[in-house]
């Protein structure tokens, strides 16, 4: 009897677990992080930039709240801009991904500023990057490490 109760409990727990997974998945599935890449960083350079294409297939907007990676002590979304010939970078508090739309993080525009790199980033490798969205939750992708001089993701 006792064993049966335990069994039922376990089944229920499993069901709840699956439901929870489905619920998270249903939201996470709306957001896709594609073509993630970072610039390589030679020894001594403690900064890099990460890029990706974030797609939202869902009917509601989502917001990218934060990014983290073991490849940097500090990661945050920035936007490069040029005004009257002055180049500057400004932190972006939360990047909105429009419904049925996409936001491109690319050189000269939105990017993930990676600071306090613990070591060099050698081109050819990958680094995991965790993107945290307001609705979709956490999505982790492997970002390809491109040469420092790259203008787009290595193919």
């Amino acid at each position: 009897m006792r064993g049966r109760t335990n069994g039922m409990f376990r089944t229920k727990l499993l069901a709840v677990g699956i439901l929870a997974l489905v619920a998270v998945d249903a939201r996470a599935a709306d957001i896709a992080v594609k073509d993630a890449w970072v610039r390589g960083a030679p020894t001594g350079i403690k900064v890099s930039a990460g890029y990706a294409r974030i797609e939202n297939a869902g009917p509601v907007a989502d917001r990218l709240l934060s990014v983290s990676t073991p490849a940097a002590g500090d990661a945050s979304v920035h936007e490069s801009s040029e005004k009257e010939g002055m180049m500057s970078m400004e932190p972006v508090e939360a990047l909105t991904i429009p419904p049925k739309g996409a936001v491109e993080l690319k050189p000269g525009s939105y990017h993930i500023m990676l600071m306090r790199l613990p070591g060099a980033l050698a081109p050819g490798g990958t680094v995991p990057m965790e993107f945290t969205f307001e609705r979709a939750g956490k999505i982790t992708v492997d970002a390809k490490i491109a040469p420092l001089s790259a203008k787009e993701m290595p193919r």
Binding site: R39, I45, K46, V47, S48, A49, H78, S80, M87, M89, P107, G108, H111, M113, L114, L148, S149, A150, K151
Partner: peptide, 16 residues
């Protein structure tokens, strides 16, 4: 400057 991860590498690449 090198602590410029986004714009400067692209500019140096173009110049080179």
């Amino acid at each position: 400057y090198t602590f410029c991860p986004d714009i400067c590498p692209t500019s140096l690449q173009v110049m080179g």
